[in-house]
Design a protein around this nucleic acid. Structure first.
Lengths: 218, 218
DNA sequence: TAATATAATTAGATTACCCTAATTTAATTT
DNA sequence: AAATTAAATTAGGGTAATCTAATTATATTA
């Protein structure tokens, strides 16, 4: 089995590859892992030895297929446990991240699959992030940032790109709820604030920062 | 927080104190932890430094009150997760131990308490072992070994002292089920085999080894 | 009680993961 | 292209948890 640390590196590399392109830099990894660069160099050598990543001196890292499988497996665990915490234990969506960070490292495919079944094979976690299936296939999301919509366009609120408790709290407070319809009623040229119509005709004004962190589907 | 290793030492010391008396020997601990004696000596020094145990060179270990609290907390986690696995995920009682060994180390009192509530505040795990409450109080069991009963005495099967999958499987196969009544119909002088009447009048013959691993309550 | 056997400790190493300081490699600017 | 800046690596160390081999302390038995 792999250590928790290795698994966390794999997850971090996976996410950086998703958002920042194929090859991941030592410094970027150091930042998200909260360690210093030499620790990363060190770790990458060990992980390359185990064929979890391909690593070339000063040229960054990529996951191998095996590394990707492990990473996706952990993401699957993470998101399923988040669903468990929210659906079964009544946690709120802004409270579950740290607990899921622990639970994701429980090693048992069988447990993961039984949990999946118990939860009714959910497609997404409480933040709208898709849950990989047991073969490590993660459905490509067709959701789009609210900030790309034009006036009078609309969609269903299906996810966020900012997972901080602060942001999620703001959404709760302001009346955003996953699955609800959202319509763009106005965009202010000057400062790019968006006027949105939420479910029940409620209108709210949000900053570009917010509009750029909301995912809508059709 | 404490490391998993520390927590496992604490649990082991706690259990050895329960069964073998107040003071625990290095060698006993080495055996149950599956490590060699010098590793134990080493670890005990570190743990004594953290005030989790009191340790005197060549005189064995005892838990401090703090150490006991941590140990009981882990046992609480372990047993609650076992209930979860059996009641909610349909695991069998002989399959849950290793998974619970992982889950017990999830650090969150809040999670433990929410899980407890979700499970309906169970009093015992799937093997009949009592679950400590949130204050670390573990109810003293009044159960008694079947091997201490005389002919025609009876009780309710409420626990086991052997938790191996092999034994639990044997019980399943033979028709023992937690909560059922058991009556002693005969005891063979020669080899100490017990003839038992199970629920539904079914009679079975078991060895002393088995009779000595079953707990009954009245 | 002296001799022996068992248990526990010390000494010295190893591995995983992390650090700081110094150096090298790569990228950017002049 | 040379000089400067930024990124990455090497060198050398530290801690937690383990090991083996050697030594000391305790317990048992003659």
């Amino acid at each position: 089995m792999h250590s928790f640390t290795e698994e966390n590196y794999l997850k971090a590399i996976y996410k950086l590859q998703e958002t920042n392109g194929e090859v991941v830099a030592t410094s970027a990894l150091a930042q998200v892992m909260g360690v210093h660069a030499p620790s990363v160099t060190d770790m990458l050598k060990r992980m390359a030895g185990k064929k979890l990543v391909t690593y070339q001196k000063s040229k960054g890292v990529k996951l191998t297929e095996r590394g990707r499988q492990v990473a996706v497996g952990i993401i699957r665990n993470h998101r399923l446990w988040e669903v468990f915490l929210v659906d079964k234990l009544d946690y709120k969506w802004d409270e579950v991240h740290d607990l899921a960070e622990q639970l994701e490292h429980i090693h048992s495919e069988d447990l993961t699959n039984k949990l999946d079944k118990f939860l009714g094979f959910p497609k997404a976690d409480p933040h709208g992030d898709p849950i990989p299936d047991s073969n490590g296939v993660l459905p490509k999301s067709k959701a789009v940032l609210l900030s790309t919509l034009k006036i009078n366009e609309q969609g269903t609120f299906t996810g966020v790109t900012d997972h901080t408790a602060a942001f999620l709290n703001y959404l709760d407070k302001t009346g955003f709820s996953l699955g609800d319809p959202i319509k763009v009623k106005g965009i202010e040229e000057y400062d790019q604030t968006y006027t949105l119509q939420l479910k029940g005709k409620k209108e709210v004004v949000v900053s570009f920062k917010v509009a750029n962190s909301l995912l809508l589907s059709y």
